[in-house]
């Protein structure tokens, strides 16, 4: 056999041994074919627009916080803030489930980052239609760049601007170095398997298809470019960005990039705070193996500051 034949055999072998979809997706996993995410079956438990389809004046006076979770997660990521908040208080929390999430592995694989974003826009526009005027947003991890994309794309030019935007460990650049070459090695690997503990399998995808990692990379790249050019918040919108010092998933450098590239409407710097934490999404402590007193203090600080802003 000549060299060309060897090369052809090698290429075919690589293609044949490349991983496709995982074969061991059991029904008890979020990725499985049995869809059990409660926010799909009972949206009224999670979305303010579904719970109060005919809001009273008193309802409309309340401040609404749209809470956006991260890549491969579910509404569970913001359940602790929902539980923290007083249901009869001055604000309500609307937990959106990103499109393509909480469903089967194949639904997740087929969704683009633009699809993920539709759930946020749907809830925002429904609340607007219902007559709410005080709407704020919080995004954790990938929720961060999704909210920044709404700002940079001019979405709020034709909608009422949000009162506040809070970002928790937003991902603009990853701490996972191999993620940047997902486009090269992804087709050979097929998917990434995430080690999970206990009930995490019910709320986060265990298998992350390389197509979705590429989507996340595309979203981050877009936001980095926008930040390099610079953009500003809509008039009247306050933004604070919190980031764990040693975030193992979303590099804390992301917050430096956001600080440099995003200003308030009047050109002033945004607020940022570096948290002494090793967690990614430090506000989510449920199902974590070991949370320290400092972790609880970090969560309390962010929650109380957000609640205070929403109570104004």
């Amino acid at each position: 056999m000549n060299k060309l034949t060897y090369l052809a055999i090698l290429c075919i072998s690589i293609c044949m041994t490349s991983c496709g979809d995982p074969e061991d997706i059991s029904k008890d996993l979020l990725d499985g074919n049995v869809i059990f995410d409660a926010s799909i079956y009972q949206p009224e438990k999670f979305l303010v627009s579904a719970k109060y389809p005919n809001p009273t004046l008193s309802d409309l006076n309340k401040h609404i916080l749209i809470a956006v979770h991260g890549y491969s997660a579910t509404t569970f990521e913001w359940q602790e803030f929902q539980d923290y908040s007083d249901p009869n208080g001055p604000y309500r929390v609307s937990q959106v489930l990103l499109d393509g999430h909480g469903r089967t592995y194949s639904d997740f694989k087929d969704a683009t980052w633009n699809d993920w974003s539709w759930a946020i826009k749907r809830e925002y526009e429904k609340l607007e239609e219902l007559g709410y005027t005080k709407i704020s947003m919080v995004g954790s991890s990938t929720g961060g760049p999704l909210l920044l994309e709404l700002v940079s794309s001019g979405y709020f030019n034709s909608h009422i601007p949000p009162k506040n935007i809070f970002l928790i460990d937003p991902i603009v650049v990853s701490s996972i170095k191999l993620q940047s070459i997902a486009g090269i090695v992804g087709p050979m690997l097929g998917y990434v398997k995430k080690e999970q503990e206990g009930d995490e399998k019910k709320y986060w995808y265990k298998f992350r298809p390389h197509e979705t990692v590429n989507e996340l990379n595309n979203l981050m790249k877009l936001i980095r470019k926008e930040l390099e050019s610079g953009f500003s918040l809509p008039q009247g919108t306050y933004l604070k960005c919190y980031h764990s010092k040693h975030d193992p998933t979303a590099s804390s450098t992301s917050t430096v990039m956001i600080y440099k590239g995003l200003t308030t409407c009047s050109g002033q710097p945004i607020d940022v705070e570096i948290m002494d934490s090793e967690f990614h999404v430090f506000t989510r402590l449920a199902l974590r193996k070991a949370s320290t007193a400092l972790d609880f203090a970090n969560q309390e600080k962010a929650f109380s500051e957000m609640a205070s802003k929403l109570s104004n």
């Binding site: 990853s174 170095k177 090793e278």
Partner: peptide, 16 residues
């Protein structure tokens, strides 16, 4: 080659 733990090196330090 990054010798640091994830989250302990700058995000702009990418491998390839």
């Amino acid at each position: 080659i990054d010798f640091a733990e994830e989250g302990h090196s700058p995000g702009t330090f990418q491998p390839l």
